[in-house]
Design a protein around this nucleic acid. Structure first.
Lengths: 113, 113
DNA sequence: GGGGCATGCAACTTCAGGGTTGCTTTTTGA
DNA sequence: TCAAAAAGCAACCCTGAAGTTGCATGCCCC
């Protein structure tokens, strides 16, 4: 497994990303940051059905997965999306589905012989 | 948000997929099914550090997310990948990262004016 | 300087999910 | 026919994550 993000190393990095996205509040946060741009914690909390502290925790989980990052701005903390983390997860899915398609092709050809 | 898989509906469908992939045992199962092809439960269990029942539960979670499906074959139950579920998650990530890139471009042009 | 807004920190509660054990059912093949 | 393999079912434990409450801190602006 010398290269490619579908190997053991890529798997270890992809895990936290999927885990971060696999929670409805966090997924909604990502979608919201994408749709409405960078926002403060207080603004991200309005309209949500959980507490500001809950939002804060979720943002840190997303940051740990490399999906968002924050910038201090006066007394506010502005959070915005981080495209790199998203790309990594996408590449992992690309690898898997591509390899699976190839495997299906091989099987099909084998059956047809 | 009238179309596209990044809207509320796409978000609702993408959630379970990411949640399913966001667990190391399940992610390893997907990688294994991709690398070694369809396998029975017993075979998927060998080499794993958890019980057969745990593997069974995980397979059902993956099936619920549309990532795998099973075929009865005698006294065995063969599980294999389901490319459609993978593609759905990938398209969701595509939408998000594409829209984010566009937003960054708009911001860049705005700043340069 | 000080009131008020935005956020940070820490302790606590709750519960879903990951895992196990023990037993039963189905199916194979000799 | 029957023993063993493969899987299903159900009850149970237990950790961690999601969420809350209460209070402390930092920063802007009048």
């Amino acid at each position: 497994m010398s290269r490619g993000s579908a190997g053991a190393a890529g798997l270890a990095r992809a895990g936290p990303v999927f885990a971060a996205l696999g929670e409805k509040t966090r997924l909604a946060l990502v979608a919201r940051l994408c749709a409405r741009g960078p926002q403060s914690i207080a603004r991200l909390t309005t309209g949500s059905d959980v507490t500001r502290q809950a939002i804060t925790k979720h943002l840190h989980v997303l940051a740990g997965a490399g999906l968002v990052h924050d910038v201090r701005h006066g007394r506010e903390r502005i959070w915005e999306l981080d495209a790199e983390g998203l790309d990594h997860a996408r590449r992992w899915l690309d690898q898997i589905s591509k390899r699976w398609d190839e495997a299906l092709d091989r099987l099909k050809k084998f059956v047809e012989e």
